[in-house]
């Protein structure tokens, strides 16, 4: 069984010398044909860089990328015919109608006139865009425009589809709609989909398998169920009113019976417990005894957020913010503190 997508030891550095930024440090994974594979990670984790390498936009410093049996570095021309790509940013032409967009795309791939018409009709119909097909796309809703981006990428019947954050910026309704379309793609056309996202629920919902990427490395891989199943019990989150009490709180929580691993993330402590409801009274009493006042206390079933926290040593949202802000000073401190905690735990 050949894989539709295969990455081995991908390394990519942007810039040179002191300013060099390591975007990928040895990413590897394999995607079986006809499945949806998720690349989950916060902003700046290396998801887009990975996608750019597979879509021939960028070349890795080392490592190999194989799509549909073709080595991306050796046969970029053939790879381009085999793949469809939906970039993070909208890529339709706003001054053209939906049909004109699809027609130009078909011509670019050397499709015949009649094939362009039938395939265009088919895609417009399937994505619910047929009624708007002859209107200028500038006037379409955001959800329709994004669906057109996906339709454009499917025009030439690619074997592999790359979706880079396909639902970022969409309202919840349009997002749910898009999720249904993406699931349909693998079923209707047998296309293999590589999906990058920083929405945990999106990966949970769509991906047959996924990898979690953090700071240019794969930190976990499996089906969403496997990843969540690796975590036992419930997740308890303690938000401290005073962040300086973090260490005292850490000690107090650790002493409570039934508490497993603890991760500190700024003013928040995340603890794994066997049974949330049963542990809570003892936990509150321990915090009270240590003179720590919690601002809030929550108990939840494990989510991918907890999986991420466990493998990356920081909560997904703080990592996402750090990535967005280009890692400003305070956030770097927070994340290095989190990393210290994480490595301390491993020892």
């Amino acid at each position: 069984m050949q894989h539709a997508i295969e990455a081995k030891g991908l390394v990519k550095t942007y810039g040179k010398g002191a300013k060099a930024v390591r975007a990928l440090s040895g990413v590897g994974f394999a995607v079986p044909r006809g499945t949806v594979f998720g690349l989950l990670g916060p902003n700046g984790a290396g998801k887009s860089t990975t996608t750019k390498i597979f879509t021939t936009l960028s070349t890795p410093d080392s490592g190999t990328a194989v799509v549909a049996g073709l080595d991306v570095a050796k046969e970029p021309g053939r790879v381009r015919h085999a793949i469809g790509y939906v970039p993070q940013k909208p890529c339709f032409d706003p001054t053209a109608t939906g049909r004109e967009n699809l027609t130009l795309q078909g011509h670019v791939y050397g499709m015949s006139g009649s094939d362009i018409r039938t395939r265009g009709d088919q895609l417009l119909e399937r994505f619910g865009l047929a009624d708007a097909a002859n209107r200028i796309t500038k006037t379409w809703s955001g959800g329709m425009q994004r669906k057109l981006d996906v339709a454009l990428a499917l025009m030439h019947r690619p074997q592999v589809l790359f979706l880079d954050e396909p639902t970022t910026g969409l309202d919840p309704e349009a997002r749910a709609d898009m999720w249904a379309e993406i699931s349909g793609v693998t079923q209707a056309d047998g296309v293999t989909v590589l999906l990058t996202t920083h929405y945990l629920e999106e990966a949970d919902q769509l991906a047959d398998r996924l990898v979690i990427i953090d700071r240019g490395q794969v930190v976990a891989e499996g089906t969403p169920e496997e990843l969540k199943g690796g975590l036992e019990g419930d997740a308890v989150q303690v938000e401290l009113a005073d962040p300086s009490q973090q260490e005292a709180a850490h000690r107090a929580v650790a002493a409570v019976r039934g508490v497993g691993e603890i991760t500190a993330d700024g003013a928040r402590l995340h603890a794994r417990v066997g049974n949330g409801a049963a542990t809570l009274p003892g936990l509150l009493a321990a915090l009270d005894g240590a003179g720590v006042a919690p601002a809030s206390l929550t108990v939840a079933r494990p989510s991918l957020d907890d999986v991420y926290l466990r493998h990356a040593g920081r909560s997904f949202h703080s990592a996402d913010r750090a990535g967005l802000a280009g890692a400003t000073q305070t956030e770097v401190e927070v994340s290095t503190a989190a990393r210290r905690t994480a490595s301390g735990r491993q020892q």
Binding site: T55, V86, P87, V108, A153
Partner: peptide, 14 residues
């Protein structure tokens, strides 16, 4: 370039 059009073109056989 500011939209994704350039990226899409560059990943196509254009």
């Amino acid at each position: 370039m500011q939209r994704g059009v350039m990226d899409r073109n560059l990943t196509s056989p254009v």
